[in-house]
């Protein structure tokens, strides 16, 4: 089992997407099936972007097992008041300047859930959000 930790800063758009790309590269190196790699990379990417867009700072932790990948994102940020609403496709609270950059389509969380075999989310308003995704092989 290998653990990788990536620190992510809020509004740091110049590095946004780095975690997803790195996770993808590493899973390629390890030799995971293309589909597993794709799903894990998308989940990692969306979690990273959620921190960049919504939070002040956070961490994406990736644990790689021979059976699959676990990705946990924890941030210090405003939190999500209504998780059920946030899970709906197309619902977004991203500010307009973020839309202009092509982000904030409201697909982030639904995308992570779609890619995950196990998906968990919890949030406390004013404190932060915790998202866990597990992508299993075969």
């Amino acid at each position: 089992m290998t653990t990788l930790t990536f620190r992510v800063r809020g509004m740091d758009f110049s590095n946004a997407g780095e975690v997803g790309a790195k996770v993808k590269r590493i899973l390629h190196q390890i030799g995971f099936e293309r589909e597993v790699t794709r799903r894990a990379a998308v989940a990692a990417y969306e979690m990273e972007l959620n921190i960049v867009i919504h939070a002040y700072e956070g961490e994406v932790k990736v644990r790689i097992f021979d059976t699959g990948v676990e990705i946990i994102a924890e941030d210090r940020g405003p939190g999500i008041p209504d998780i059920e609403l946030a899970m709906q496709e197309g619902y977004s609270t991203a500010p307009p300047e973020v839309w202009k950059m092509g982000f904030g389509a409201g697909m982030g969380l639904p995308n992570i859930r779609k890619c995950s075999d196990i998906f968990e989310i919890s949030s406390e308003v004013g404190k932060g959000t915790y998202v866990r995704s597990v992508v299993l092989r075969g």
């Binding site: 290998t2 590493i26 190196q29 390890i30 030799g31 790689i64 097992f65 021979d66």
Partner: peptide, 18 residues
Amino acid sequence: LRMDSTIEGALDRFERME
């Protein structure tokens, strides 16, 4: 890009590389 022919081997190698 693959570090080893098996996942287990590659994981082990990846860890040692890190």
